[in-house]
Write a protein that binds this DNA or RNA. Structure first.
Lengths: 227, 227
DNA sequence: CGGCATCCGGGAAGATACTG
DNA sequence: CAGTATCTTCCCGGATGCCG
């Protein structure tokens, strides 16, 4: 007897013509924007999404995926054989929210109660690099760094004052780091030294470590607000 | 016997170093960002905030104001005599969220289910003008429009491809409109003609109506996504 | 009237267990 | 692995009432 599904009452909305209010109708529910964040660097499977969002339970993830799909922000797609696996992928419009996600992150980094030492997902680490990159500090330096986070690999390149971060084969880069995302954050934002983390075995470097240390100079956390 | 306040359990947080997640810790609760929106053009009183946010109940507004104050995004201030009235005012850091609020609005305006004919507050109307202004369309035109929304007055100026919108004395402008915010939106975004709304008495113009009609050419809604 | 506390009903979020 | 079903907890929204 589970045919009480007829109700399907409309989701709660701000009845407001303001675009900001409508944005919150679309992505204002808890976890929704973080689900989009996890998809910003490419499609993901249900389980990988859940793994990147500790604290999010499966039923809520299902609801958010349904809502975001209904809004036209993502699509459920089946990868071609031999993978034949179901993934969730942002639409073009969904991807257009990336600068907003980045701007939110940069803005909130000024919060006195922001704790940058908490764990974070590999995708948010990569997006953080894109957001906090300072082109002036980089000048015309040209370099590439590969990151291995367990089975996930990313390549970050800096050239002509532009930083790009994408999924790719880490081994293609000048230097390759094998680390946890939070350790990369600690090094890039100056909380821990590379040598320190290499000594404890938490970070493994293939290639010239000096290239990565140069790379970390391109980033700086913004000053805290108020205080 | 109301000393059961000891609980005070910590607010629910995403335990995530990602700046975006922390932004949602700060302003991710329902209504929080819209409360900030209402304060973007200057301090407001409790009752005026509530009036600008239909559907928001007083107890929830109290909670949001407490949360935003604890986060350092706004301060509760008492106006000097003879007003001697309590108002809520964004901090500098809080005001820095304005481009994010604007970007969210512009992004969400592309939603197929966005209904720009719903009512909206005077503040969101003014912010909408700032966000959707197209400098290329304006060229080097120079003009000023005054808006009267009941007791609230705003002045919008366009000069050298820059639009500013602030509280001020509407009568100082070249043209003054007395209207509801949603009627201004209808004209600016091309759903209704000025003459039409003047004929029905919903909009009153002091000064040259042609100046306002020129003004409306500087705005256009973005194309809908997907479809 | 403005600001805040209290109580209540409904619904969303969170945790766990279960199924194909 | 990819969800669904169920239960509990908590938040949201509305109403009421107190107090300055």
């Amino acid at each position: 007897m589970k045919l009480e599904k007829i109700t399907k009452q409309a989701p709660r909305r701000y009845e407001d013509a303001c675009g900001t209010a409508h944005a919150l109708d679309l992505v204002g529910e808890r976890w929704a924007l973080l689900v989009m964040r996890e998809l910003m660097l490419g499609p993901k499977r249900f389980g990988d999404l859940k793994a990147g969002l500790p604290g999010l339970s499966a039923n809520v993830l299902t609801q958010r995926l349904e809502g975001l799909e209904a809004a036209g922000l993502l699509v459920k797609r089946r990868l071609p054989p031999p993978a034949s696996v179901q993934v969730y992928e942002l639409t073009d419009w969904g991807r257009e929210a990336e600068p907003i996600v980045g701007a939110l992150g940069k803005w909130a980094a000024r919060s006195p109660m922001h704790d940058p030492t908490l764990p974070l997902s590999s995708v948010s680490m990569m997006l953080s690099l894109k957001t906090m990159f300072d082109a002036d500090k980089a000048g015309d330096v040209c370099l590439s760094i590969g990151f291995r986070f367990g089975p996930e690999e990313f390549v970050v390149t800096v050239a002509d004052g532009v930083l790009t971060a994408e999924r790719g084969v880490a081994g293609m880069a000048q230097v390759v780091l094998t680390a946890r995302p939070s350790d990369v954050a600690a090094m890039v934002y100056g909380f821990r030294a590379l040598d320190d983390l290499r000594a404890s075995g938490e970070v493994v470097v293939e290639g010239d470590p000096a290239v990565f240390e140069r790379f970390t100079d391109f980033f700086e956390l913004p000053p805290k607000a108020g205080v």
